[in-house]
């Protein structure tokens, strides 16, 4: 089971180390972790995707809450949150394959953000499934390099997490 946690933390030196250290020390598996500033400059928000059963989720949540610099932990369920990830994919191409790659990008509402004689860089935003799908389709052309941001997620509706 994978869970998405939205973790509000103090925007302070060492916070990322504390959080990451807790995960590794206690042997929890992180699938992805993103961190960035929020609407309030004194706080940062992390989106952490963690793997484990409900008991692991409960322990992870409690251990996170135990860190002094962690302000709030919210378990984002897929039914009441939206999530996005971005990937940049550098694909081999030549004159003949370029238009085909552009077509695929079009279908996924991805964008070509760099063009060179023998490669293009595709920027894609979406949920994990969408990114996996375009990756599959581009693979036959030869993916030279790929970078993914990891998931960010936010609660739907009025309430914030």
């Amino acid at each position: 089971m994978r869970h998405t946690l939205s973790v509000l933390v103090e925007n302070r030196y060492g916070v990322l180390t504390r959080v990451a250290g807790m995960f590794s020390r206690r042997g929890y598996n992180i699938d992805s972790l993103t961190v960035g500033v929020t609407e309030d400059p004194t706080m940062s928000r992390m989106t952490i995707v963690v793997r484990g059963d409900d008991q692991v989720l409960e322990q992870v949540t409690k251990q996170l809450n135990k860190l002094i610099d962690v302000i709030r932990v919210t378990d984002l369920k897929s039914e009441n949150s939206v999530e996005r990830e971005m990937a940049l994919i550098k694909v081999n191409c030549d004159v003949t394959s370029r238009s085909e790659i552009m077509q695929i990008a079009d279908i996924f509402r991805a964008r070509i953000i760099d063009v060179a004689s023998r490669s293009v860089v595709v920027e894609i935003t979406g949920d994990e499934g969408k990114i996996n799908a375009i990756e599959q389709l581009l693979r036959p052309f030869g993916i030279k390099e790929m970078v993914r941001t990891g998931k960010v997620a936010i609660r739907r509706g009025q309430k914030s997490s």
Partner: peptide, 12 residues
């Protein structure tokens, strides 16, 4: 850094 996992909290 060394004492992060063995302190309740620490400060520099």
């Amino acid at each position: 850094g060394i004492t992060m996992p063995i302190t309740k909290h620490n400060y520099l």
